[in-house]
Simulated scan of single mutants.
Amino acid sequence: MEITESLFVVADELTEEGELFRFDTGDQTLYFNVDGTDASEVAVTTVQAGVTLHASDLLVV
């Protein structure tokens, strides 16, 4: 499954419902949440400092 921009955000916190993936630049962690809320967030991976992720970098199989 290709991740689109509408499902991905680069932010310190969720900005709107429906965002399934959030990349937090503060702690360099990619989070997934099943229902678009902070309560369901799970850390997927942490990357090196300086890395910038985009929706097009993600592929779910």
Rank of each mutant, 00 (worst) to 15 (best):
V34R: 07
D57Y: 07
F32H: 12
E16C: 10
L14V: 10
G26V: 04
A11T: 08
T4A: 13
L53M: 07
T15F: 04
A39H: 08
L58T: 02
E13L: 03
T15C: 03
T52R: 03
D38R: 05
V47S: 04
G18R: 14
T29C: 08
V9A: 06
T45V: 14
V34W: 04
F32L: 08
A49T: 10
E2R: 10
F32M: 04
F32K: 03
E17I: 14
T52A: 12
E16I: 08
F32Y: 12
L30C: 02
A43C: 02
A39N: 09
D38M: 06
N33F: 01
N33V: 05
V44N: 02
S40P: 00
V60Q: 11
G26Y: 05
D27G: 07
T4D: 11
V51C: 07
M1G: 15
V42I: 14
D38L: 11
D57H: 12
V60D: 04
N33Q: 15
T46A: 09
T15Y: 08
E17C: 02
L58R: 00
T4K: 11
E13N: 04
V10L: 01
D12V: 07
R22G: 08
Y31A: 02
A43E: 08
G18V: 11
A39Y: 03
D38E: 15
E13H: 15
S56V: 00
S6Y: 11
T25Y: 01
D27C: 06
D57W: 00
E41A: 12
M1V: 13
M1Y: 04
S56K: 04
V61R: 08
D35R: 13
L59N: 09
T52V: 11
R22F: 11
G50S: 03
M1T: 13
S6E: 11
S40K: 10
F8Q: 02
F21S: 05
L53G: 01
E19D: 10
T37C: 02
V51S: 06
T29P: 01
D24E: 13
V61P: 01
V10I: 11
A55R: 01
D35N: 12
V10Y: 02
L30K: 05
G36F: 06
Q48I: 00
L7V: 00
S56N: 03
